[in-house]
Design a protein around this nucleic acid. Structure first.
Length: 994
RNA sequence: GCUCAAGUGGCGGAAUUGGUAGACGCGCUGGAUUCAAAAUCCAGUUCCCUCGGGAGUGUGGGUUCGAUUCCCACCUUGAGUACCA
């Protein structure tokens, strides 16, 4: 008697794989190689839920498949182990983040192991490991020691730039600086003192230190990158974010904007993900236009202030419609151009806008505000004097921080002009702009515009740019939305910068002395003086004589210097980890040339789409940089990328209203579905108050306060023996007794009951998270049904890339399939293993090869959900055929091995093999088993399906036509008529058009 | 607002380049086995019907002998982004 005892089988093979290092990748083979990578997890304290493994299962299936196909597969896993949650936990409990991280990692590892992944654990990396972050620090130094040459479109060593400066000055250098770098000659450069030289070089370095306006989150005590802010609040925690100027490390990613954009073309990524990156980079083509600023409207040269306002516009063709110029409140020219009369107003306005947080400003979109500076800008063609305003709808961080206001062509300019009674000049032929601006480009003809009147948009733009160039007041310009990335965090649990400060100037610590290891601190909070947590460390100064970390009391600024107090952001370590897996133990290089050359880039990368504008962009940036400097042989890190959809949790809630009565007794009334709908639709006028009126506490002056909700998920709290307390039955009815026991507050609610005398809870699908009590743990599924069932079921749920709610409703179907598969090999007495050497029936061979064909196609196309169905059909058919032949059952086991590796290994062993099934070649589809067969061809007349004719599958198109026309059924239908046309779709259908 | 994706039974979802819509699974119904239950197996299951058939892939058009698939317009939902000049 032999049952499908999945728990024993899975444990046995997981141990076998670990012991035999079955999935260890080789760095030097003659076989072709393939690199399958998952986005490595952040080991959070909550552990894995069933959503996490979805992508890992998909990549594991593909990795195992590729091994069967004879590839040397690299399929590693590791941990993105620096991060905020561990630090916040440390702040609360005083535990060192390294310790909690360690605990979380071992929990993760434990959970991952239970699912039977084919990871090569010998290559594990952890970003918080000093052996690893030594190289993150090293890459930072390389970025510091590089500048970006716009002419060659690549990063070059800073030493080459110094050479140029020494010989030619900076006049011929085509590089982007964070601020306008004044020109200097070779002689001037050579005469500068060292400090000045260093300051100038900082303007060119790819990693640079500069005072930048940053997103400051006071609650988290740190700055955040743009992609870490969602809807104006922090992604983590949802705290408010304000703008603040700080001295920060930044990365000149904007230099790579164009390459990051154009290189997307050749990547095998989904179009929607590419679009997200394209939008984020935000390329727009237009013109840079300079306006001369005058003190007043009078046309006298003496009123010229001697400054110009540069604007960027995607619509230079609308320049004759310009009626004002608007500056961002933070614009550097504001002070210089504001007239004496307007000074007070302007100062007041700027103070007000500075007070507003990013979020307030966003919430206030509809409310246009601004103030006149008193100055005027001269139109380059008409010489008209346009008033210069300050307006907070103009962003300091985009373009030049100034716009030319063309009310007719831009709705925001239109609203602004309306509000402040500025002229609205119509410059479009046959278009009405009396109500709103006309923003379409299309084929509109420009009018009332001097030399471009009568031209369409595109041509007019070109002409204007041409004319501006002649005047020296403008040129064609490409602008990007992508901004340089802030690289400093006021945090403890991150990579320390390998930087010390000599007289305020940053100096790099030599590679020989890396890693610079995180110092010990007593508390993980910022210091009392507002410095980052590293400011609390005593041993945090750099002794340049001995090249060691020493106590900060020894700082003398001669030989001992202060170290950087910021740490690197979370994305630092994750921007290059895929290279480290290639050679994870290397102590001399971040990865050896040979390893990098052997594996090249990641062939298949699977992870969530939430990293589209963060991790995936930064990784591409660092890879391009490392490529430019010759450290890696590839320009892009991830050839093919798949975003697995999120698995959502289903939550159950009680919604209740808190009602405050005049006698100050507070009562909670649970809502039924109908009332709830009325409430959210604000239709409370016809709300049924009768139920409340019956209550003794009812009063005319009921005060409705907030709508509350309470989770009553059935899987959220576990009894000691892992049995979920069932709060809610399948009809969504609440079990009061159990619910009250769990959450006594539920007792204080008055429930409207349905006809069964029960209360129906609300169901909603939302993200799985600990705080929502809707987490399903994969361990429980593995224990109850086995890892193979979990793997197949997660694939069976639906298309990989689609988001879907978790439900165990269909899991028995998949589990039954595995039991049937087991039985297929155990048809002996009392369920004993039984397989024979007899040749298989033609029918069984047909089933097998049909399955091989479909499953191979499915894996190649990543449609794993349909191949689970294919397996089910195959097993059902083979069971019906009573197939016991090795000829079919052996290849079948291999076929299923990527999906359900444990059961496949067990069957393989029972079939008499000692080697792991993962070394066996994948079955090859043989057409002959299908071709010899016949097929029913549907025959239609004028598109209407009439009957089917059975014909051999091997016929050609013409033969099918002849055979169909000669067939008695056809002749019977035609009754002597001659059809006009016969259409044959091979293998499909025959259409007769009469 | 802009960009993108998706709308198919009671449910999750199948359907090659346009070719028998609803595979497969869940659920449901009936049956077999059983003292009974679990487990397993078999049959049925889009809707309507006067049992001949008719309708049907968000809605309305179009192309085609033939449309879930291609084109146009609209509706709905989801995702991303947001004063980006």
């Amino acid at each position: 008697m032999s049952n499908y005892n999945f728990n024993d089988i899975e444990k046995k093979w997981q141990e076998y794989w670990a012991k035999n290092k079955t999935f260890k990748a080789n760095n030097n083979t003659t076989e072709p190689n393939y690199y399958v990578l998952d986005m490595f997890p952040y080991p959070s304290g909550a552990g894995l839920h069933v959503g996490h493994p979805l992508g890992y299962i998909a990549s594991d299936i593909y990795a195992r498949y590729k091994r069967h196909k004879g590839f040397n597969v690299l399929h590693p896993q590791g941990y993105d182990s620096f991060g905020l949650p561990a630090e916040q936990y440390a702040i609360q409990t005083g535990q060192h983040p390294a310790k909690t991280t360690e605990v979380n990692i071992s929990r993760y590892r434990n959970q991952l192991d239970k699912i039977g992944f084919s990871f090569d654990w010998s290559r594990e990396v952890r970003t918080s490991n000093p052996d690893y972050y030594k190289w993150t620090q090293w890459i930072f130094i390389q970025l510091f020691e590089s500048w970006y040459c716009k002419t060659l479109e690549k990063a070059l060593p800073i030493s080459e730039l110094i050479n140029i400066f020494e010989e030619e000055g900076n006049i011929g250098v085509n590089a982007k600086c964070d601020k306008q770098q004044a020109e200097f000659s070779a002689k001037q450069w050579n005469d500068f003192d060292d400090e000045k030289k260093q300051r100038i070089l900082l303007n060119y370095r790819l990693a640079y230190l500069a005072e930048t306006e940053v997103n400051w989150c006071p609650k988290l005590g740190t700055v955040l990158a743009n992609d870490e802010i969602v809807n104006g609040v922090s992604e983590r925690g949802g705290y408010p974010v304000v703008r603040k100027k700080m001295m920060q490390w930044s990365m000149r990613i904007s230099n790579y904007a164009d390459r990051l954009l154009t290189d997307l073309e050749n990547l095998d990524w989904s179009e929607s993900l590419k679009d997200t990156q394209r939008n984020w980079i935000g390329k727009s083509v237009g013109a840079a236009i300079k306006f001369k600023v005058f003190l007043n409207k009078k046309d006298a040269q003496s009123n010229y202030i001697g400054a110009t306002i540069g604007v960027f516009s995607t619509r230079p063709d609308t320049i004759f419609g310009a009626s004002f110029i608007a500056l961002a409140p933070e614009h550097e020219l504001v002070q210089k151009i504001t007239t004496i009369e307007q000074r007070f107003e302007v100062a007041k306005y700027i103070e007000e806008t500075a007070k507003k947080s990013e979020r307030d400003r966003m919430a206030d979109v509809k409310n246009t505000t601004g103030v006149f500076t008193g100055a005027y800008a001269e139109h380059p063609f008409t010489k008209e004097k346009l008033p210069v305003w300050i307006a907070d709808y103009v962003l300091a961080t985009y373009g030049t921080g100034a716009v030319m206001g063309v009310p007719a062509g831009d709705q925001r300019d239109y609203d602004f002009a309306k509000k402040f009674h500025l002229p609205i000049k119509n410059i479009f032929k046959d278009i009405d702009v009396s109500e709103k601006a006309y923003e379409e480009k299309g084929n509109t003809i420009i009018a009332n515009s001097d030399f471009i009147s009568g031209m369409p948009h595109q041509k007019a733009s070109e002409k204007v740019i041409e004319a501006l160039e002649k005047l020296g007041q403008g040129k064609k310009k490409i602008n990007y939305r992508l901004r340089d990335a802030v690289f400093s965090r006021q945090r403890y649990w991150g990579e320390p910068f390998p930087v010390y400060y000599k007289h305020g100037l940053p100096q790099m610590i030599d590679l020989k002395h890396l890693p610079l290891v995180l110092p010990k601190v007593e508390k993980y909070l910022p210091t009392e003086t507002g410095k980052p947590p590293l400011g609390r460390a005593d041993n945090w100064a750099w002794d340049t004589r001995h090249n060691i970390v020493v106590n900060k009391d020894l700082i003398d600024d001669i030989t001992v210097f202060p170290l950087e107090l910021n740490t690197m952001p979370g994305w630092a370590g994750s921007s290059w980890y895929f290279f480290r897996y290639m050679d994870p133990k290397n102590t001399q290089e971040f990865a050896s040339k040979e390893a990098l050359e052997y594996w090249k880039n990641v062939d298949l990368y699977i992870g969530g789409s939430e990293h589209a504008t963060g991790h995936l962009l930064y990784s591409r940036f660092w890879t391009k940089f490392l490529f430019d400097r010759g450290f890696v042989p590839v320009n892009e890190p991830f050839k093919k990328l798949i975003n697995q959809g999120m698995i959502l949790g289903e939550s159950a809630f009680v919604y209740y209203l808190e009602l405050e009565f005049s006698n100050r007794v507070i009562l909670n009334f649970a809502l039924d579905k109908k009332t709830y709908e009325k409430l959210i639709l604000d239709e409370l006028e016809d709300f049924d108050y009768e139920i409340f009126k019956e209550h003794p506490c009812y009063d005319e002056d009921i005060n409705f306060s907030n709508l509350n909700r309470l989770s009553v998920n059935k899987d959220n709290i576990k009894k000691s023996k892992n049995v979920p307390i069932e709060f809610v039955n399948n009809s969504n009815e609440l079990d009061f007794e159990k619910a009250f026991q769990w959450e006594p507050n539920l007792k204080n609610i008055h429930y409207p009951l349905n006809s069964n005398g029960k209360y129906e809870v609300f169901r909603e699908v939302e993200k799985m998270s600990k705080s929502k009590y809707n987490v399903v743990n994969p361990d429980d599924i593995c224990e109850q049904y086995g890892a193979d069932t979990l793997r197949m079921y997660e694939m069976f749920l639906g298309p990989l890339e689609q988001a879907k709610p978790w439900s165990t409703a269909g899991i028995t179907g998949v589990h039954n399939f595995l039991k049937k598969l087991w039985r297929l090999y155990h048809t002996g007495e009392n369920g004993a293993f039984f397989v024979n050497d007899n040749p298989a029936s033609k029918e069984s061979l047909k089933t097998l090869h049909k399955t091989i064909k479909k499953v191979t196609e499915d894996i190649e196309n990543f449609s794993f959900n349909t191949s689970v169905s294919t397996f089910m059909i195959a097993v059902n058919e083979l069971t019906a055929q009573k197939c016991n032949s090795k000829e079919v059952l052996e290849p079948l086991a291999v076929l299923i091995a990527p999906y359900a590796p444990h059961i496949a290994e067990e069957l393989w062993q029972k079939l008499g093999y000692e080697q792991s099934i993962s070394t066996v070649a994948f079955p090859v589809f043989n057409n002959q088993y299908l071709v010899e067969d016949s097929k029913e061809y549907p025959v239609s007349f004028n598109g209407k399906m009439r009957f089917k004719i059975e014909l051999p599958l091997s016929l050609t198109k013409d033969e099918i036509e002849t055979a169909v026309m000669a067939h008695e059924k056809t002749q019977h239908y035609l009754q002597g008529r001659t059809p006009k046309k016969v259409i044959v779709v091979p293998g499909k259908i025959v259409n007769i058009v009469g």
